[in-house]
Computed example of a mutant assay.
Amino acid sequence: MRILIRYFFRTLRLILTPIVLISEKLSTPKAIVRSPSDQGRADQESSKLALYQFNACPFCIKVRKEIARLGLSVETRDAQHDQQHRTELEKGGGRIKVPCLLISHEDGRQEWLYESDAIKSWLQDRFEPAT
């Protein structure tokens, strides 16, 4: 019985994953418009960030959409299929849980931020243009 359940969910994932990824592409918002100097600063700051994620994870999609909306260039690291990134996440952050934002500070210190809402809030506080 367990084998049947396992294969059922694997098949379900195989069917739903392309649908979820296509939906993400179609619903990703356009980036906010900044002045060239402000965009340069945002690009420089976001180069210090890396997002550990799984492609079809809905919480990771939520964070990737926010990154796209803010017009950031954040490196994404696949912790599901890339063993090196998975190991880095476990050693650095202490657990294999996605999404996880790695923040590299100027002093060499690294901060590992988990939870999609916390990541979104941190990105908005840091990169949302003043109104």
Rank of each mutant, 00 (worst) to 15 (best):
P129M: 05
K30G: 06
E115W: 03
P29D: 08
D38H: 13
V98H: 01
L102T: 04
L102W: 01
V33R: 09
F8Q: 02
E128Y: 00
L89K: 03
L26N: 06
E88M: 12
L14I: 05
A130S: 12
D117Q: 11
K30M: 10
R2Q: 05
D82H: 10
L4Q: 07
P29Q: 08
E24Q: 14
A118V: 09
C60H: 03
E88D: 15
E66I: 08
L70S: 09
G92E: 05
I19C: 05
R6N: 05
F8R: 10
L16G: 11
E111M: 08
L21D: 09
K120M: 05
G93C: 05
E111F: 08
L101Q: 02
T76C: 14
K91G: 00
V33H: 10
W122A: 01
S23T: 13
K25F: 07
K65T: 10
L26F: 14
L12H: 05
R41I: 12
T131G: 06
V63E: 02
G93M: 03
E75P: 02
R86A: 15
W112A: 01
I96D: 03
I32H: 01
A79W: 04
L113A: 04
Q110Y: 00
S46L: 08
K65Q: 14
T17N: 08
P58I: 10
I67D: 02
K120L: 06
Q39F: 00
A79C: 11
P36H: 08
E111T: 15
E106K: 14
S73T: 15
I119N: 01
S47N: 11
Q84W: 05
T17K: 12
C60A: 11
E115F: 06
E115G: 02
L14V: 00
L70F: 14
E90H: 07
S23I: 08
W122H: 10
I32D: 02
L21V: 09
E90P: 02
Q124S: 11
R64K: 15
I5Y: 06
R64A: 04
L12R: 14
T87Y: 05
H81T: 14
R109M: 11
M1H: 03
S73Y: 10
L14N: 10
R86I: 06
I3S: 02
A31T: 09
I19R: 11
R10Q: 14
K65I: 09
G71E: 07
L49G: 04
Q53K: 05
D38S: 14
K62H: 14
L26G: 00
S37C: 03
P129A: 13
E24G: 03
I32A: 00
A42L: 06
L4A: 13
S116A: 12
S37H: 13
I32Q: 07
A118S: 13
V98L: 04
A118E: 13
S104Y: 05
L49Q: 02
T11Q: 07
W112D: 01
I67T: 06
R34S: 06
S73F: 10
D117S: 14
G40C: 01
P58M: 11
Q53N: 07
Q53C: 05
K30V: 07
T28A: 15
E24D: 15
R10M: 15
T11Y: 15
T11E: 00
I96S: 07
E90S: 08
Y114S: 02
K48I: 07
I22H: 11
